[in-house]
C-alpha cells in the first residue's frame, strides 16, 4: 500500500506496469474537478487520487460537496470542468461509452434505491442481463453468488418491501458487486439505517475491503473509518481541506475547520 501511495504521489521507484494489476496510474484520478449548479459553486477544483485496493473515507459537513464529488466520478453529475479517469478510462470523454464504463464503478446510495417491483435476485441480475449480456441462467448464478457474499442467499425471492433497511442496503451492495466493478462508491450507506442495522452493512463493507476492492466511502462512521480506512479526506465548502491516515485526521487534525468538525461529530 505504501508503494502504491508513493506511486500515486509520484514518489519512489516507478513500478512495472501491471504489478498488482496496477496499470497506468491510480484506480481513480480526478483532477481539478469543478461543479456549478447555477450560481452555486459546489466543487472548487477538487483533486482526488485513489490507488488500487485503497479505501478512502470522505468526511465533511453537509453541503461540503462530498456527495457531488462521488457522483462526478461515475458521471451521474457532469462536472463543469476538470478530468476524471477511472481504471484508465476517461469518464468525461464524450467518446467514452459511459454505460460500459459504469459497470466498472459500483455505487451504493443512502436510500438504497432498490427496484421495488423486483425480487432481490431480480435487482441483482437486471444489469447482468441487460448490460453485461449474460443469459438468464448465468445472471441468476452470478446474482445468487453476489447475494451469498452479502449474506442474503436465503432472501433471493424477497421483494425490497419485505426486507429490513440493512438487508436492502446489502442487496444494493450485491447489485453493484455482481458486475465485478473495479471500484465501489458508497454515498452515506448507513445514514438511513436504524442504529442496530448499521453493523451488518459495515461488516459486508469490511469483507469487501478485505477482498481487495478499491473503495471511496462518504460516511461519518468514524469507528469504521478508524479500523478500515487507509486515508481520510476532509472536505469543506467544495474543497479538500486536508487528508491523511485516519489516526492523524481524527487525533491531530492540522486545520481549525477539521478540528471543529471532528469535535462536533464525536460529541454525538
Amino acid at each position: 500500500m505504501v508503494c502504491a501511495l508513493q506511486a500515486v504521489a509520484g514518489l519512489g521507484p516507478r513500478r512495472p506496469r501491471r504489478a498488482y494489476g496496477f496499470m497506468n496510474g491510480p484506480m481513480v484520478d480526478a483532477r481539478a474537478v469543478h461543479k456549478h449548479f447555477g450560481a452555486l459553486h459546489v466543487l472548487k477544483g477538487v483533486d482526488l487520487r485513489v490507488a488500487e485496493r485503497e479505501l478512502v473515507f470522505v468526511i465533511g459537513p453537509s453541503g461540503s460537496g462530498k456527495s457531488t464529488l462521488l457522483r462526478c466520478l461515475n458521471r451521474l453529475e457532469e462536472p463543469s470542468s476538470g478530468s476524471v479517469v477511472v481504471d484508465g478510462i476517461d469518464i468525461l470523454d464524450p467518446r467514452t461509452d459511459i454505460n460500459h464504463a459504469r459497470q466498472r464503478i459500483g455505487m451504493v446510495f443512502q436510500s438504497f434505491n432498490l427496484y421495488p417491483h423486483m425480487t432481490a435476485l431480480g435487482n441483482v441480475t437486471l444489469a447482468l442481463r441487460l448490460v453485461a449480456g449474460k443469459s438468464r441462467g448465468e445472471a441468476e448464478a452470478l446474482g445468487r453468488a453476489a447475494l451469498e457474499r452479502v449474506g442474503l442467499a436465503d432472501r433471493a425471492g424477497h421483494t425490497p418491501g419485505q426486507l429490513s433497511g440493512g438487508q436492502q442496503q446489502r442487496v444494493a451492495i450485491a447489485r453493484a458487486i455482481a458486475l465485478e466493478p473495479r471500484v465501489m462508491l458508497f454515498d452515506e450507506p448507513t445514514s438511513a439505517l436504524d442504529p442496530e442495522l448499521v453493523g451488518s452493512v459495515l461488516e459486508v463493507m469490511r469483507a469487501l475491503r478485505e477482498s481487495g476492492m478499491t473503495m471511496i466511502v462518504v460516511s461519518h462512521e468514524m469507528g469504521f473509518a478508524r479500523n478500515a480506512a487507509d486515508r481520510v479526506v476532509f472536505m469543506d465548502a467544495g474543497a479538500i481541506v486536508e487528508e491523511g491516515p485516519p489516526v492523524a485526521i481524527f487525533e491531530r487534525p492540522a486545520h481549525e475547520r477539521t478540528r471543529a468538525f471532528i469535535g462536533q461529530i464525536q460529541r454525538h
Binding site: L76, S111, N113, L114, Y115, V131, A176
Partner: peptide, 24 residues
C-alpha cells in the same frame, strides 16, 4: 434515485425507462 441506481449499473436511458421506471 431509481434512475440513478439503474444508470449507475450501466443501464442506458431507454433500458432504465423500460425496465425500472415504466413498471413503477
Amino acid at each position: 434515485g431509481q434512475w440513478e441506481a439503474a444508470r449507475s449499473t450501466g443501464l442506458s436511458f431507454g433500458q432504465t425507462l423500460m425496465n425500472v421506471v415504466l413498471p413503477q
